[in-house]
């Protein structure tokens, strides 16, 4: 087993883990269940997190390679008492059906809007190309990203 310190949503955490383990598994085992597991193939995006500011599939990251790094999950950008405008936008646009894809979708949106506050439709689609959603047909999700962009522009 290995040990390492990670900075997760602003807090330092020490985990013991198997050197073969995926970051997804270790995060979930340690209570970060907002990071979802849909495939472990890198295809669905339910496990998406920000790793040192970069959007990645946590199932495609070996835990050992993330030691010392900054991890942000969907809980790290806002919570139910003070949600992030993107989280509000997803709610208002009815972009959340089952919600299993939602944490990943929201982080992909966050990552997009950080560098590109006023994305065009095709840029939005491209930014969400790593997130599968079987419920919504993506229409309301794309609406939500546009709404989030407007909301954040107003702030």
């Amino acid at each position: 087993m290995m040990e390492g310190i990670f900075r997760i949503n602003g807090k330092e955490k020490r985990f013991t883990f198997n050197p073969r383990s995926r970051l997804l598994t270790v995060l979930r085992e340690n209570g970060y269940t907002e990071v979802k597991e849909g495939c472990k193939e890198g295809e669905c995006g339910a496990c998406i997190i920000l790793l040192d500011g970069r959007l990645v599939n946590s199932c495609q990251v070996l835990t050992a390679s993330a030691i010392g790094k900054e991890i942000i999950t969907v809980k790290g950008i806002g919570d139910i008492h003070s949600p992030h405008p993107i989280q509000e936008a997803f709610v208002e646009a009815s972009a959340v059906q089952c919600g299993f894809c939602t944490p990943g979708m929201i982080l992909s949106t966050y990552y997009l809007l950080k560098d590109n506050p006023n994305p065009k439709e095709d840029e939005i689609r491209k930014a969400l190309d790593g997130n599968l959603c079987r419920c919504t047909g993506y229409v309301k999700i794309i609406d939500a990203v546009k709404l989030a962009s407007r909301k954040m522009g107003e702030k």
């Binding site: 269940t33 907002e34 969907v74 989280q87 208002e92 919600g99 939602t102």
Partner: peptide, 17 residues
């Protein structure tokens, strides 16, 4: 607004696993 959507969007809502 869907009543469970904010808890889902903030990662609070729990699924089986």
């Amino acid at each position: 607004e869907k009543i469970d959507s904010l808890s889902l969007a903030t990662g609070n809502a729990r699924f089986t696993d």
